[in-house]
């Protein structure tokens, strides 16, 4: 089971590295923000998997923080910084 968890963590990390391409390319600020939202979800999954792997069960609380932060950043972006990159 440990190996399966490690492979899953590596795959998620790989997809994240793939997503950074979208921040580099743009073209608009919205596209860049989408990658940040993607990493919110991937961050939750990664934290849960690492928590199971290392036996640190407090990491489930951290996954909750990640989940809430994704929404917070999206709202801050839409309300405050919309169109800042045009």
């Amino acid at each position: 089971m440990t190996l399966a968890l490690e492979i899953l963590a590596t795959v998620i990390m790989l997809t994240v590295a793939l997503g950074i391409y979208r921040i580099e390319r743009g073209p608009t600020g919205t596209d860049r923000m989408l990658s940040a939202m993607l990493f919110g979800t991937s961050g939750v999954a990664l934290t849960l998997v690492l928590g199971e792997l290392t036996g640190l069960h407090g990491l489930r609380d951290m996954a909750l923080v990640f989940a809430l932060l994704g929404a917070l950043t999206a709202v801050a972006f839409v309300k405050r910084a919309w169109g800042a990159d045009d």
Binding site: T30, G40, V44, R60, A63, A67, G70, A71, A74, V75
Partner: peptide, 16 residues
């Protein structure tokens, strides 16, 4: 946790 991510994700998605 999954339900919070779904609700937050759907709301953020609609906003964007």
């Amino acid at each position: 946790i999954w339900m919070i991510v779904i609700v937050a994700g759907a709301t953020a998605c609609y906003l964007v």
